[in-house]
């Protein structure tokens, strides 16, 4: 009896979050997939459904014959979409590399700091991560805009003449700054946790044996911190590809990013089928990095569990 109850309890614990994610995470994707195959209509909701599950198997077969690939064909015909995907991937890639270059020395310094400082330093990295994304991006507008703080500072120290202004806001450079700034904590935290575990005596041994510190870094420190590097890069790269707020607020009209394109397609053009198709392709583009990220996470978990 008690055994039976245990099993039921266990089933319940699994079932509740499982069903929730199934209904609100997986099923919505299937709906997006379905709508991406339907036609736009001037109605509410603004699409003609391709098929409804109520018609059973025959309905399904009939529907497959009528599936419309128009939206996908449209995506290949207008080069706006392809350019958006490519430029999103490129911007995310460049930003990830810059974030790694900025974040690594910070994480390294934190890991070498005296242990009674570390909790405070960690807190200082985590704190901006808790502060609103929107607020942090907004803070940069005031700095980067033509009559903004950066111009004032550069004019005061004489790098710019009084009638010159910085032209950074509404350019891709501003998007890079925004992404690096917003995602830096995501990079520093996994790097720090990898570097903190590193055994300092390995480096001492290498140096005692005459290894140059820089070489010791490349041969010992960097390879051992690789799990942190991988986790950090995925945590920056994947969400950056689909970023909307940063390119919208800091980027200009020449900054194409797929999140922005999807948003415009949905809210301005009200073309739900095409925005669904954009989402499906974006997901396909990201599926490989997402699966790799999950694998890395699982392996890290198993290592920790011993």
């Amino acid at each position: 009896m008690a055994q039976h109850q245990d099993r039921n309890g266990r089933r319940l614990v699994i079932a509740v979050p499982y069903l929730w994610l199934l209904v609100f995470f997986l099923v919505p994707f299937l709906i997006v997939l379905k709508i991406s195959f339907s036609q736009i209509a001037v109605a509410m909701p603004p699409y003609t459904p391709t098929f409804s599950l109520g018609e059973g198997w025959n309905g399904l077969v009939a529907a497959f014959k009528e599936l419309s690939f128009d939206n996908y064909i449209w995506l290949t015909e207008d080069d706006l979409y392809i350019r958006s995907y490519l430029s999103s991937l490129w911007i995310a890639f460049v930003s990830t590399v810059i974030t790694l270059l900025v974040g690594y020395p910070v994480a390294y310094g934190m890991a070498r700091a005296p242990s009674h400082w570390r909790a405070t330093l960690l807190m200082l990295v985590i704190l901006p991560f808790w502060t609103s994304f929107l607020i942090r991006v907004y803070a940069w507008i005031g700095i980067l805009k033509p009559e903004g703080l950066l111009t004032v500072v550069l004019q005061t120290i004489g790098i710019l003449s009084p009638d010159e202004q910085v032209r950074v806001l509404n350019t891709t450079t501003a998007v890079y700054i925004g992404i690096v700034y917003s995602y830096l904590p995501f990079m520093v935290l996994p790097l720090y946790s990898a570097l903190e575990k590193l055994d300092g005596s390995l480096l001492e041994a290498a140096e005692d044996l005459g290894c140059h510190p820089l070489k010791a870094f490349w041969v010992i420190t960097f390879p051992l911190s690789l799990p942190g590097v991988i986790a950090g890069c995925f945590l920056v790269f994947i969400p950056a590809v689909g970023e909307f707020v940063i390119p919208d607020l800091l980027g200009g009209s020449e900054t194409l990013m797929i999140g922005k394109t999807l948003w415009a397609e949905f809210f301005s053009n009200r073309d739900w089928p095409v925005s669904s198709a954009v989402a499906v392709i974006l997901l396909l583009v990201l599926i490989l990095p997402i699966v790799l990220f999950q694998r890395a996470q699982q392996r890290a978990q198993e290592r920790e569990a011993g």
């Binding site: 997006v32 995925f234 945590l235 994947i238 969400p239 590809v241 689909g242 970023e243 909307f244 999140g259 999807l262 948003w263 949905f266 925005s275 669904s276 989402a279 974006l282 997901l283 990201l286 997402i290 990220f293």
Partner: peptide, 9 residues
Amino acid sequence: VMPEVITGL
């Protein structure tokens, strides 16, 4: 890591 635009849509 899912882009917010996809989750939202």
